[in-house]
Write a protein that binds this DNA or RNA. Structure first.
Lengths: 240, 240
DNA sequence: CGGGACTTTGAGCAAATTCAACCATTGTGG
DNA sequence: CCACAATGGTTGAATTTGCTCAAAGTCCCG
């Protein structure tokens, strides 16, 4: 449904003035954290804050990669499609995550907001030109790419070799770690989770029920999970 | 079987002297290609050429990441294991490929030679320290990481959403492109292919037979594939 | 030429999918 | 304010794809 929606234009130096980088909530957790005040100004000159409604497309696979982003708040799904509509979600992004790797001429995947989201948008060309003056920025991005590569390899192991219960356990355990809380909030639907874990929604639903019956989790509602036994969940996630 | 073998020590500046970077066969296709003669000397000072026998371990997941590598010749498999032995091969590397991303303190996966291989070995710390003097090198590595990220996302789509026939077609099509030849040589066994595609060896074997019966490929022997209809193979690989 | 590693094929099985029905929640218009 | 349509979630039954178990065939390589 969001396929034909486009991102509203934000005027640079407008929203930005109202919310300069120095006052940014997530600055210390993003790529910006490597920059000092003076360097941050350079970045602030090319940045724009853009709100994105739930379900809205940020960019599509194959589009000219004009921008890269930091997620300020909200959540985003990245995915690839097969011609017949089969979808693989390759990752979920949350506040402080960088969006736009790999740095290539065209986006290799599509990105949509899962929930109402605010992104911090940089023109890719201008950012890359900043690399020469701000080598710390490039180092940080290489580090970011390394982290994503490791996550991608973990996900390949999950998709290629784990059972449904192991997949869902891995997902919930990772979310709990990210949210730093036994009470996990799921912004995404069962369809999103299924397309991320390489399963169907029915299997995801049945597996939630199974984990609940095993007393490993509780699901007060469809979008909340309470981890009752983190150690068993972790073992199940790791296939032991 | 190769689990407890270790890499023979190569004396730096020994083999290296016999085969300096300037005379390297694959230099123009590796990360070294961004460097000029003078810069290449800096790299040559920290490099060592090491032969690796088929089946031999180059490094293991969790090991301290002391070195990174260029593959000079041969082929390498990267993989992760679950505690019960299930294996997911996350990639195959061939001549001119870079080995060692993500650049982290510990290797996130294991690497073994598939066939007799020669690698060009760099101490990771020394290489990273060269980044400041040779920013082109770091740029190239970020580019390399971007390519790997894209490949990883393609592989997630394959593992999460493609059928057995689509997976094998994707694999053969990618190899044909890489080898730039309709006659594809498979260095790896059916077990390796299965662990790369998230299947069992039996399913891989049956799927070879299926593609052969469909007249899409021919298999003169178990390690040679001739692509008879590249266009149909490509369509099948892409799920059409 | 013999033995081990690898590959292929067959038969039955199981995990996950498909198809279908039903339930819960939410938002909308009468 | 309620009826009801739409969306999302759960559960059940039947089916299917790919897996497990088993056996036989092939190819090196000494």
């Amino acid at each position: 449904m969001s396929r034909f929606q486009i991102l509203p234009e934000a005027v640079e130096g407008n929203d930005t003035t109202l919310m300069p980088c120095a006052a940014c909530d997530v600055r210390e957790m993003t790529i910006c954290s490597v920059l000092g005040g003076h360097e941050l100004d350079r970045l602030a000159q090319i940045v724009a804050r853009v709100p994105v409604a739930a379900g809205q497309t940020i960019f599509q696979e194959g589009d000219d990669a004009e921008h890269v982003y930091n997620i300020v708040s909200g959540s985003v799904r990245l995915f690839k499609l097969l011609p017949d509509g089969r979808r693989q979600i390759t990752g979920f992004l949350f506040d402080s995550d960088f969006l736009g790797l790999a740095l290539k001429q065209h986006y290799a995947y599509s990105a949509e907001a899962v929930s109402p989201t605010v992104v911090c948008r940089f023109p890719r060309g201008k950012l890359e030109r900043l690399f020469d003056d701000l080598p710390k920025l490039e180092k940080r991005l290489l580090d970011e790419a390394s982290n994503e590569l490791i996550a991608a390899q973990d996900q390949m192991l999950l998709l290629g070799r784990k059972t449904a219960a192991e997949r869902l356990s891995s997902f919930l355990f990772a979310l709990a770690r990210r949210q730093n809380n036994r009470h996990v909030e799921l912004e995404m639907t069962r369809t999103d989770i299924a397309d991320y874990l390489g399963l169907t929604i029915e299997t995801v639903s049945r597996t939630f029920t199974k984990l609940r019956k095993l007393d490993i989790i509780d699901t007060p509602d469809a979008h909340s999970v309470v981890i009752k036994d983190a150690s068993v969940l972790k073992d199940m996630a790791e296939g032991e």
